[in-house]
């Protein structure tokens, strides 16, 4: 197996996280404001420094490898795939990835339909499953254009869709987050779940990339 994307949810030793190192300098008013807000909210007992640190650590521990496990399981287990398409939250929770406060909707790519996800209003993203969104997902260019000229935007990511493939663009909201279930690459029949998960990229779960044909 090629395990470079392997991530064990329960045991983090594959991905040791060094504590974040402070930048040497503070460069902007908003950086000062952020420090001031944090200190005030701690002084008033609204939050604790430990809570902020725990949320940072939790955020760091969530990576696209979590979503890749969901995808690989769906490829291998038709009953799981059906549960995922029916209720994304429950299916993710089955694999140890709880998603709180938002509804996860999985959308499946097929040979005649491709799905791509955006949040035109800001940056809503399945953070609890994939981690923080990439910078381009939050960019004006992606948000503005992918709903109007999605094929052109996908081409900029090197993704060429045939004209006879229908393209569905899903606009996320504060309440609903989307996960693209990419097509399983051909030539991967012999691979086990872990090896399959290692093939699944973040961008394929957002829908801007396809997974290539695998070994064949």
């Amino acid at each position: 197996m090629s395990g470079h994307h392997h991530h064990d949810h329960d045991h983090d030793h594959d991905h040791p996280h060094a504590p974040p190192q402070p930048d040497d300098k503070v460069h902007s008013y908003h950086q000062i404001l952020s420090i001031a807000l944090k200190e005030l909210l701690i002084e008033k007992g609204v939050i604790t420094a430990a809570e902020v640190r725990q949320f940072i650590e939790k955020r760091d521990s969530i990576t696209p490898a979590n979503g890749a496990k969901v995808v690989a399981r769906a490829w291998l287990d038709p009953a799981y795939r059906a549960r995922l398409l029916e209720d994304g939250n429950a299916a993710a929770a089955e694999l140890g990835f709880p998603i709180t406060g938002t509804k996860l909707v999985a959308v499946e790519n097929t040979s005649d339909t491709h799905n791509v996800v955006v949040c035109t209003l800001c940056s809503c993203y399945p953070r609890d499953l994939l981690g923080l969104p990439p910078a381009w997902y939050k960019s004006r260019a992606y948000r503005a254009r992918v709903v109007r000229e999605p094929r052109a935007v996908l081409r900029e990511f090197g993704t060429e869709l045939s004209d006879d493939v229908a393209l569905r663009v899903h606009d996320s909201t504060a309440d609903i987050r989307f996960l693209v279930l990419p097509q399983r690459p051909v030539g991967t029949d012999a691979l086990d779940e872990e090896a399959l998960a290692a093939l699944v990229t973040r961008d394929s779960m957002i829908g801007v990339a396809l997974l290539d044909g695998g070994a064949r």
């Binding site: 503070v26 940072i56 939790k58 910078a135």
Partner: peptide, 20 residues
């Protein structure tokens, strides 16, 4: 679309954790 990756720096991670 500029597809380049941006790793959050320290203050951005702090801001994300504070908001959470």
């Amino acid at each position: 679309v500029d597809p380049s990756e941006h790793t959050l720096n320290f203050w951005e991670k702090q801001a994300d954790g504070l908001r959470a």
